[in-house]
Amino acid sequence: MRLDGRAAIVTGGSRGIGFAVAQGLLASGADVLLTARDGIGVEEAVERLRAGGGSGERRGRVEGRTGSAGDPDATDRWVRSCLELFGSVDFVVNNAGANQPLAPAVNGDPAVWLDTFAVNVHGPLALVRAAWQVWMREHGGAVVNVVTEGVHGAGPGLAAYETSKAALLQLTRHLAAELAPGVRVNSVSPGLVRTELARHYWEPAERQLASATPMRRLGEPEDIAAAVVWLLSPAAAWVTGTDLLVDGGRRVAPRR
């Protein structure tokens, strides 16, 4: 799945799933513009990615930019930076996500809902719009939105997060229909992955959670990254408008 000469924007790329996606794309030869809110985190991530080369096939180049995925001005800047740095904007990976403090839908802070939807729904749309207008409309491309397995259920206190991700899933379908045949748009729904963002879920009961999963382990960021890179690659040339559930089989685990 070589992607030499292609360029990608990966949001929320300073750690976790986004960092692993950037690693996978660079290893396949693609250039990567990595973005996140934390400037120091972006700088450190770029340094680690550049240092992780080694011998073998050509690796892509990586640069970093800061800003909020929920800020349309920032997403516009990222697209133009990617074009200036690498000469194209072939791939967009909307990985950045706002996971606010747990709260029921009926009495959650309205400001939290607005911020969550800004980052998880409006931001991805703004980034795809900018990429479409600047590059993809004429040259094609592929988009992957990172959703969550939670859209298939209702996690306690996760109303804002899961509802916004469900909206992103539906947006994925609409964009796939609207931008075909030149641009493919898909999503990945990760199960419980061992990231810092989800640490408070998995760390207190990792062994029990793993044993309840048919694959007998929790996910790693690299598991999700492999799915994302595949969906962006020519190997998935006839795949669009789909959601790839990557959860270690949790959804088919026998009920106890």
Rank of each mutant, 00 (worst) to 15 (best):
V32E: 04
T66R: 07
R48F: 06
T75G: 11
V93T: 08
L197A: 15
V185F: 06
D31C: 15
T35P: 00
L197D: 13
G182F: 07
G13I: 01
V151I: 15
M1K: 03
G16H: 00
V188K: 01
P72D: 06
G108P: 00
G182A: 11
A131P: 04
E84M: 12
L49R: 08
I17R: 01
L25P: 02
L83F: 15
G123N: 06
A227L: 07
A177T: 13
V144I: 06
R80N: 08
V193E: 11
L83Y: 14
P181N: 10
V121F: 13
A198I: 10
R255G: 13
A131Q: 07
V106K: 00
S14M: 01
E222V: 14
T35R: 00
P101T: 08
A22K: 04
A212W: 00
N94K: 11
G191C: 08
S211F: 00
N99Y: 15
P221H: 05
S68P: 03
V239Q: 09
A210T: 14
V147W: 10
A160W: 03
G56P: 11
A30H: 02
H152Y: 13
S189D: 14
H200I: 11
V246D: 07
M1T: 06
M215Q: 12
V89H: 02
G150R: 05
E220Y: 07
V89M: 07
I17V: 13
A96P: 04
A111I: 06
V147M: 09
L244C: 10
L158H: 07
R48V: 09
T195M: 06
P234W: 14
T35A: 04
R137L: 11
S187I: 05
A126Q: 06
S233W: 04
A130S: 14
R250C: 08
A51Y: 04
V121D: 04
D73I: 06
L171Y: 01
Y161D: 01
W132Y: 14
V146M: 09
P110N: 08
D247P: 00
L25C: 02
A177E: 12
G53L: 13
A30Y: 01
V112R: 03
R48C: 10
G18S: 09
S187T: 08
G140H: 09
R137W: 12
V92L: 12
N120R: 12
